[in-house]
């Protein structure tokens, strides 16, 4: 899967978690916590959805370190089966 495809899939998940977010305004630099106002429960739901859809179980420590949408997409691009 290409990076843009990863991004599209992740944005799809984010739209479910944060329905008020406008997908077209999301970029690589979008900060998941600051810009999208995701809290720890939202992030847990995001990690769970990624696990369900892509089979990638992001460890807590890695999830805490991921700051932006671009970093998340890059992480998945490297690790996804």
């Amino acid at each position: 899967m290409k990076k843009e495809q990863w991004k599209g899939r992740v944005v799809g998940i984010l739209s479910g978690i944060a329905p008020d977010v406008e997908p077209e305004r999301l970029g690589d630099e979008t900060d998941l916590r600051q810009d999208l106002d995701l809290d720890s429960m939202d992030l847990l739901n995001l990690v769970e959805a990624i696990h369900e859809q892509f089979g990638v179980a992001i460890p807590d420590a890695d999830a805490s370190a991921i700051r932006t949408l671009g970093e998340l997409v890059g992480y998945l691009d490297e690790l996804a089966p």
């Binding site: 847990l44 990690v47 769970e48 179980a57 460890p59 807590d60 420590a61």
Partner: peptide, 17 residues
């Protein structure tokens, strides 16, 4: 929490809250 979550699937993890 970290030890618990390390052994759990994301859907089963705990929050400090």
């Amino acid at each position: 929490i970290a030890a618990q979550n390390a052994a759990r699937a994301p859907g089963e993890r705990l929050l400090a809250a």
